[in-house]
Design a protein around this nucleic acid. Structure first.
Length: 696
DNA sequence: GAGCACTGC
């Protein structure tokens, strides 16, 4: 009576598509005998439902199945349920489904629990940082961020409790996803019974297939049946979006902010009602466009009165972000001018028109200077398609691309560069080391990072005393640093604080350094913000200033009003508390003594130095403009104007990070004594060239 | 006296 495909039953019909992958011929969905409740009917109306049998067949017979599914296909919520219904969660095994983002994990898990009529955290559960809603032995389907799954591998390198692991949104190519894919490929060789599903929104499935294709064949006697086929299966599932008509400009656009404004006005004049979503690169562009558009509307008369113009970027205060979701009043048209946040993280209902500038801010990394920064760069074709798709969620839409069709076809790359190839790899390398991957340079990456970047990461870890001469994790420091889920320099700072007796203070600093900013985003009330900052400013620098803010917050009883009055971001402070609690638990597990140094800030600065000695700088002699040089590399740097040490210019400082604009600015700076540097890292500072007037 | 795409453990 069951319609599910089971091993041994007649196979569904398969067809080779022109790409050389395996594509299933749609089966009829109407013959199902699943339940008749409305939820079941809804499930059956999803495009993925037609492929249910095919998916189960492919997963049964292939070690890896790649599913190309557009948004709205239902793959994320349905496939884990199909697998469970087909018995993949029998015998205490668990079906895992990873997501790049926490919010998606929670949303999908609660949706699936609802569809299955179970309480979230029982048969269906989820795990994200700070939250574990699963029940061992009961949970059959578990949603989690890919970062959490990597963390789980530290305790269970073969992920032995999982029968199927579905890696969703793999096309986004985040660092965690790429590390995970590389490791899963390795696990497959040891666990032929494990099944992988790689789910991606773009057609670049072939390169993913090639990556998993090269898996070594499971060895066995000649003629023996060796379990699943090694070559990955590829299956495409259509989405449920509406058609989106694409319009290109006829000639290149010189000023895309201006072009955005005129395009929005044109849509508003000529097109029927429906909201407009604009993609620009960052806060600057967006604020400029909002201002320009508002002025145009005021100069334009009656027809433009119906526009509600809203900016959207992650740094926006919570209340302003929420305006985006308010339904558009009758007769009005909403225009949301956004960063990439609306491309993947947030979904706006009611959008019918998309205006795509063709650019976004992207992280880039130079391993030689060890500097990460953001650059405005052209987006990929995949990104352009994703942006256009945002116009077709409620009804057929239109997308206006502010670049020529010729440019789209000939100049835009098919896919973006994976994050792995645009980032500092220190955290990535230590994670792999902790998982016993000794040969980092020879690791089978989905997209190998440059050797320079890997060597740079190894150097930094060696200088921190986390790796030894053989590039193996040191014990215990190396393992401890790997266990703390933060940048290794911060983790090292925490370890040192244990010996220096200031771990209570240092974990507060570590928590603050791992959020964006404790201050409310500065524009508009700059003077007031600067004055508020002075109330907390410490002569030692920004790190000690953070301690003062934290103390003030606790003394206020964690009051939102107190935060508001002092230009402090309340949401950020709540996050600091949360991260701090987690660090405290990790520290206790690692045997780090939690101790406060009370008012002795000297040891706090020494602990900071122990983690960040590589970022030491010296004020240039006779410098009247605050010019510093890094000790290693002798690069010209300046204290950022947002630092409490701006214009104070102590002789020796260490910084937490550099931002590179017209100059290189040090953010989060603390003054130090030069003797501490050699104390903290004698090996690192022993061979300074004599031209560098160092450590006298 | 300047600027923060977006995630995640």
């Amino acid at each position: 009576m069951s319609q599910f495909w089971k091993p041994g039953a007649e196979k569904p019909r398969l067809l080779d598509d022109e790409e050389g992958g395996v594509l299933f011929l749609a089966a009829s969905a109407s013959s199902s005998r699943l339940g008749h409740s409305s939820i079941q009917k809804q499930r059956q109306r999803l495009p993925v439902y037609k492929y249910r049998t095919a998916i189960l067949y492919l997963v049964e017979t292939h070690a890896t199945t790649i599913i190309v599914g557009e948004t709205g296909s239902g793959k994320t919520t349905q496939i884990p349920q199909y697998l469970k219904e087909a018995g993949w969660a029998d015998g205490g095994r668990v079906i895992a489904c990873t997501q790049p983002r926490r919010l998606a994990v929670q949303a999908v898990a609660s949706r699936v629990a609802e569809e299955m009529g179970v309480k979230l955290g029982e048969e269906v559960g989820y795990t994200i940082r700070f939250e574990n809603l699963t029940n061992t032995g009961v949970t059959m389907i578990k949603f989690l961020t890919d970062g959490v799954l990597l963390k789980e591998m530290m305790d269970d390198p073969l992920l032995s409790k999982y029968s199927v692991i579905m890696v969703d949104e793999a096309h986004e190519r985040s660092i965690s996803t790429d590390i995970l894919l590389g490791l899963l490929k390795k696990i497959q060789q040891r666990r032929p019974e494990l099944r992988l599903i790689i789910s991606s929104a773009t057609i670049e499935a072939k390169s993913m297939a090639a990556f998993f294709q090269t898996s070594k064949k499971h060895r066995g006697m000649e003629g023996e049946v060796l379990g699943p086929r090694i070559e990955p299966a590829i299956l495409s599932v259509e989405g449920r979006g509406f058609n989106v008509q694409i319009h290109y400009v006829e000639g290149p656009v010189s000023n895309y902010v201006q072009a955005v404004v005129s395009t929005v006005l044109l849509i508003h004049d000529r097109e029927p009602m429906g909201d407009i979503l604009v993609f620009l690169t960052g806060q600057d562009d967006i604020d400029a466009a909002v201002k320009l558009l508002t002025e145009e509307v005021q100069n334009c008369g009656r027809n433009s009165l119906g526009l509600i113009i809203l900016p959207l970027y992650s740094g926006l205060p919570r209340a302003e972000q929420e305006l985006i979701f308010a339904p558009t009043p009758r007769g009005k048209r909403k225009v949301v001018i956004s960063t990439n946040i609306a491309e993947t993280s947030l979904t706006l209902e009611g959008v019918v028109y998309v205006v795509d500038s063709g650019f976004s801010k992207q992280r880039s990394y130079n391993p030689l200077s060890d500097i990460e920064n953001l650059v405005v760069a052209p987006i990929s074709k995949a990104s352009a398609r994703q942006r256009a798709g945002r116009a077709g969620r409620v009804r057929p839409g239109k997308c206006y691309r502010l670049y020529t069709e010729e440019y789209f076809i000939n100049e835009m790359s098919a896919e973006g560069i994976p994050e792995m190839q645009r980032s500092n790899l220190v955290s990535c390398v230590i994670q792999l080391k902790a998982l016993g991957i000794d040969n980092i340079l020879g690791f089978d990456w989905p997209a190998p990072p440059s050797p320079e970047a890997m060597v740079r990461a190894l150097e930094v870890l060696y200088s921190l005393g986390v790796l030894d001469d053989d590039a193996k994790l040191t014990s215990p420091a190396g393992f401890q640093v790997a266990e703390i889920a933060l940048d290794p320099m911060i983790s090292k700072m925490i370890l040192s604080s244990s010996e220096l007796g200031c771990s209570e203070e240092i974990i507060t600093i570590a928590a603050v350094l791992s959020i964006q900013s404790v201050w409310v985003s500065g524009r508009g009330a700059q003077k007031e913000l600067d004055e508020a900052k002075l109330r907390f400013a410490a002569a030692e620098g920004d790190h000690v200033t953070f301690l003062n803010v934290y103390k003030g917050f606790l003394q206020s009883g964690k009051s939102p009003q107190w935060c508001h009055k002092n230009y402090i971001n309340y949401q950020a402070m709540k996050k600091v508390i949360e991260i701090r609690e987690q660090l405290k638990r990790t520290a206790q597990r690692l045997g780090i003594v939690l101790k406060s140094c009370e008012t002795d800030m000297l040891v706090v600065r020494k602990a900071i130095t122990a983690g960040f000695f590589a970022n030491a700088c010296r004020l240039e002699a006779f410098s009247h403009n605050g010019k510093y040089r890094t000790i290693r590399g002798s690069q010209e740097v300046y204290i950022h104007p947002s630092s409490v040490l701006f214009r104070v210019n102590p002789k020796w400082v260490i910084y937490h990070s550099l931002v590179s604009t017209d100059r290189r600015y040090m953010r989060n700076v603390t003054s130090v004594e030069p003797s501490w540097l050699r104390e903290a890292a004698p090996h690192y500072y022993k061979h300074q060239p004599p031209s560098n007037p160092m450590l006298h």
